[in-house]
């Protein structure tokens, strides 16, 4: 199994407060890896380390090494790293302009200016998220007018416009209803043919349904990682058992 991402002893700090403690884990290529764990265990911080978004924040920093392929991410420019590792956030956050402009925002930054090429990117990625049929007639409409589920799919489509190698999702369904969540889960299963996906989720059933591999985190540590079936079916660590059986979390 080819690993696309490898973390070695990554620790993260907000000021003096430590949020991650020597986390080591790896992510297989073109599979879905779910990160589960109780609130405040460092799941979101971990994602922010991987795409180095953390170093954009005031008084936050991380130590340790993260390898994308063979390359240490510290040797990759922050903007370039984030282009290669996309991220979607918890609450849908479309930019407050039209659907089309949301889709062309990042390509334009990367120097794509021909209308034809921009159209191609927008249509292709909207189709990937199944949104195209729903919004094709109203690409000029404000993205804020879409429903919550549509907004979140738009954000995923937007993240794909720069052709990332990895797509990270930080609890993408927590603000959505069951039906919208189901659509997104189906879409992710489709997307993993092209992209590597890391999803942080609170919803254990969701992790069980869609993830090939699951990582359990607790209090800034990775307690256990492995194939989803094993983690859920036969957890080795006491904390994992407790969490999965609902003792805490």
């Amino acid at each position: 199994m080819e690993m696309i991402l490898r973390l070695e002893k990554v620790s993260a700090y907000y000021g003096k407060k430590s949020a991650l403690k020597e986390v080591s884990m790896s992510v297989p290529k073109k599979q879905i890896t779910a990160i589960i764990g109780p609130s405040g265990c460092g799941k979101s911080t971990l994602l922010r380390c991987i795409n180095s978004l953390l170093s954009e924040e005031k008084d936050a920093s991380y130590t340790g090494d993260i390898f994308l392929g063979e390359k240490n991410t510290r040797d990759i420019e922050g903007d370039e790293l984030r282009r290669r590792i996309g991220m979607v956030f918890q609450t849908p956050s479309p930019f407050p302009f039209s659907v089309y402009k949301n889709m062309t925002y990042a390509p334009k930054y990367n120097g794509v200016h021909s209308k034809k090429e921009l159209d191609r990117i927008a249509v292709e990625k909207l189709k990937m998220t199944g949104l195209f049929d729903e919004v094709s007639a109203e690409l000029d409409k404000s993205a804020l007018k879409l429903s919550g589920g549509q907004q979140q799919r738009l954000c995923i489509a937007r993240a794909l416009t720069v052709d990332p190698e990895i797509l990270m999702l930080d609890e993408p369904c927590s603000a959505l209803d069951i039906k919208s969540s189901a659509i997104i889960e189906k879409m992710l299963a489709e997307l993993k043919k092209t992209y590597t996906i890391i999803i942080v989720t609170h919803n254990l059933a969701q992790a069980k349904r869609i993830a090939d591999r699951t990582v359990f985190m607790y209090d800034g540590h990775v307690i256990e990682e492995g194939p989803t079936d094993e983690i859920f079916g036969n957890p080795k660590k006491e904390e994992t058992k407790d969490f999965l059986s609902g003792v805490f979390g």
Binding site: L81, R82, F89, Y105, A106, A159
Partner: peptide
Amino acid sequence: IPQQMLSSSYALGCSRGY
């Protein structure tokens, strides 16, 4: 300004200036 909106832009690989 909602922080997530700005983060979304950074997460797309766009610079602070942009």
